[in-house]
Structure formats: C-alpha cells, structure tokens
Nucleic acid binder design. Structure first.
Length: 421
DNA sequence: TCTGGGGTCCTAGGACCC
DNA sequence: TCTGGGGTCCTAGGACCC
C-alpha cells in the first residue's frame, strides 16, 4: 500500500502558522507580482468561491468585502516549513518520495498488521503537532488510487482527512462516484476527449478496452488505466533524478522598454540559476534565453523571440553565462515594444567532473572558479544577492517583482523572528 | 492599469548515419 | 517499371503536474 500525504491549502496554512489571530479566518496567497490567487484556505474558498488563478484585480473588491487577508508569496517560508513536514514523514516509513513542495508518497509495503486508517490519523496528528500544518492522508494500493483516496479524505467531513481504499469493492464504488476529469493525470484536453465518447466516470474509463486507451491517450493513459484497476505501474522515486533543465522566468514588476534594464533582470536570473548549478556541482552545455511582451494585452504590439547557444565548454560560471545571455538579448531585442518577461534556461546539465575541454581551452583554466566559490559562500552567509555581478545593476531594480504583502521570513532570518510580548 | 512560475513526459517528424 | 532497412539524434508541440 501507498499513502499520499498532502498539506491542506499549503501556502495559506504556512501563513497562518505564525499568525494565531488568523486561525479560522479566510486567507489567500498571491502569485509573484501579486498577480493571481494561487492558494486559498478552506474559509476563503467557502466564503467567496474564489477561483484559483483568477487575476487579483478582478476580485479585489470581493475579497475586501469579506475581510479576506491577502499575502504576497513567501517561498522562503514555504520551502522551510515543507522540509519540516517531510522530515516528520520519515518517522512513518523508511521510503518517502517527495512529490512536490506540499505532498509526498510514502511506502507502506509490509505494514501487514497495521490498521491503516489509524496509521493515517497518527501521521496527520503528528505533522500538525510538529509543524502546525494540517494535512490529508489517502492510502491505496497504487499511486493514482492513493491520490484519489486523498481527494476523498479531504472532501467528506466524515472521513476526517484520512481515507483508505483497501478492498476491490471499495475501489469500484469510489471509481463509480468519481468524475473522470478529477483523476490525477487527466487534464482538460483528455477529459474533453473522453467525455466526447461518453466516458464521464473513472469507472467507465477502466472498462474501456486497453488498445483504445493506448491509442487515444498514449502510454501515459495506459498506466493510468492499469493503476486505477489496482495494478501498480508508477514506482516510488525516493532519490530525485537530476534536473534536466534549470530555468527561471519572471514577469517584470513594471513593463520595460530599454535593453539595458532587460539585461539587468536577465543577469540577475542567470546568477540565480548558475548558483543552483554550482550548488549541485554541475555545468550546463546549452543556454536558452527568451523575451516577450504581455500576451494578455490587447493594446500593446506583441513580440516574442528566443535563442539558444551551445557553450564552447559547459560551464557554471555566472560571468560567462551573463556574457552569452547578453549576446542573445542584443540579437533578439527589438526597440519599440513594452516587454513583460525575460527568461533563461540551462540544459545539457552534466557533473562538473565530466566537463571536457576543447582543442584551445582546458576546463581547468577557469580563473573564476575560486571567485564563484567565494561569492557563493558570502551570499550563503550574509543573504541572497549580497554580492553579485555589476551587470545586475546598481540602480533601483525597476524590473523587480511586486510583493506588497509579504509576511516575515519567520524561520530563516534572525531579524524577522516572531516576537512574543 | 493590473493576468505566476517551475517542471515532466510522450510523440511525430525531419535530418542524418551505415 | 521497379528505389531498403535499421538505426540515432534533435526539435517542436502537446499534454500533464503542483
């Protein structure tokens, strides 16, 4: 059996942990740039039927009228609380797969004489006691069914956030009462496709002939079909695979027209991603850069472009990568547009030790290596971006994200610790 | 006026190899 | 008149996830 443990409205719950005055009150968390709603707690959902990913400007009045507390996103806080939750989970099984910031699969294989409903309750209660974060637990023979069990656990108050699918009768009963579109792995397009041939429930889907499923939904659909019928196809992935790409792309706080400001933002993003490369002792072979205007705008002229360079020698050096990125930007930038976003992506990621030189250069001659190490250690000690390349700009950063209502970084900054009077 | 960011996997098709 | 068969690698696009 496999358990899926998922935090309830995770970001909103994180905001409430250190704010007892908000317990039981509606809370929502906004995306970068305070653009859309990305998390809403139960009270907020109940009160106003807040649609997720709704642009905030469309519902601001609604939220205000209902005394909903808004937060800008505070990923430093969420990331740290996530680690606490995951560490607690490890006390319940030797095999844990961290699936995302707020959910994990845990392997309960061999828990033969354990009452799984009790065990799920114990997990839930321990996490809450240790971290203040409420969770739901779904337990079933496969990952897809565990996801479904988790969904049911959260929905019906009678389940008290723990639900187990342990018999075939229960499984079939659940599938008959589940819309196909709410199955993990069935998105909007697949749901439409299935509904067009009269499949509305998960049970109907599992009754379709396998060759049809394979043809229409590829091998991904076949796995889903098998998993829903109780045959485990998705393994536990305890050791995360190395990332295939590391990228960042953020909308500007304000629209930008000048190349130099766009280059500053881009240089800053390069510093972020190359730091990730170095932290995991890897180098990248390809650098992709893209630039585009605001596609939602009906009044602005639209333009988007992108380009990729293959580096002569794979690198994780911030300065080399900034130089390359700037070359690309000069090529794809066209004056006269109001740009909204620049993004960088590094791929072809290989371990530092595998980097090969070429006829003219040895990878060992990288004179910046020690400098980069020094920069990383200073930033780790004194705070992100304390030391950076001059290319990221010295003026006020006009491209910086808007974060009007960010909560304190309660768990990672001495200056922002919670004070108790 | 204001609309997120970071990922994965799969397939088809083109270009190339012997 | 008739034009093979077995591969790899890369990219773009589409679908999905949190």
């Amino acid at each position: 059996m496999i358990a899926l443990v998922d935090c309830n409205s995770f970001y909103a719950s994180c905001e409430q942990v250190f704010r007892p005055d908000l317990w039981g009150k509606p809370v929502v968390v906004l995306s970068n740039n305070d653009g859309c709603v990305i998390a809403a707690n139960r009270e907020a959902k109940a009160l106003t039927q807040i649609p997720m990913f709704e642009p905030i400007f469309k519902i601001k009045n609604l939220l205000k009228a209902n005394n909903v507390t808004l937060f800008s996103s505070n990923y430093t806080l969420y990331g740290e609380l996530s680690i606490r939750v995951m560490n607690t989970l490890r006390d319940f099984s030797p095999r844990v797969e961290i699936y995302s910031i707020d959910e994990s699969f845990i392997d309960l294989d061999g828990f033969i004489n354990t009452d799984l409903k009790d065990y799920g309750n114990k997990i839930k209660e321990t996490i809450f006691r240790n971290t203040g974060i409420p969770t739901g637990v779904g337990i079933a023979p496969t990952k897809v069914l565990a996801k479904l069990a988790n969904k049911i656990a959260k929905k019906g108050p009678e389940h008290d956030h723990v639900f187990v699918i342990d018999t075939d009768i229960k499984r079939i009963d659940v599938l008959k009462n589940t819309e196909i579109k709410s199955i993990w792995g069935i998105g909007r397009q697949h749901a439409i496709k299935l509904q067009n041939v009269g499949i509305y429930t998960a049970y109907q889907f599992t009754e379709m002939p396998l060759p049809w499923v394979r043809k229409e939904l590829t091998v991904v659909g076949e796995r889903l079909w098998r998993e829903l019928r109780g045959e485990a196809c998705l393994n536990m992935i305890e050791i995360p695979k190395p990332k295939k790409g590391i990228g960042t792309a953020k909308s500007f706080g304000h629209k930008l027209e000048s190349l130099s400001l766009i280059q500053e933002a881009c240089a800053y993003y390069i510093s972020e991603v190359s730091e990730v490369l170095r932290a995991q002792k890897t180098c990248a072979m390809y650098l992709h850069v893209f630039l585009h205007t605001n596609s939602f705008s009906t009044s602005d002229k639209q333009y988007r472009n992108k380009r990729t360079v293959t580096l002569a020698i794979p690198t994780n050096n911030t300065f080399t990568l900034i130089t390359e990125a700037n070359k690309i930007l000069r090529e794809i930038y066209k004056p006269g547009y109001r740009y909204k976003k620049v993004g960088v992506n590094l791929t072809g990621i290989i371990p530092e030790a595998y980097v090969q030189g070429n006829l003219f250069e040895s990878p060992k001659t990288d004179q910046y290596k020690e400098l980069m190490q020094l920069v990383d250690s200073l930033n780790s000690k004194y705070g992100k971006g304390k030391v950076s390349s001059g290319s990221t700009g010295t003026r006020m950063k006009q491209w910086e994200l808007v974060k009007a209502d960010r909560s304190p970084r309660f768990t990672t900054q001495w200056a922002e610790l919670l004070t108790v009077k």
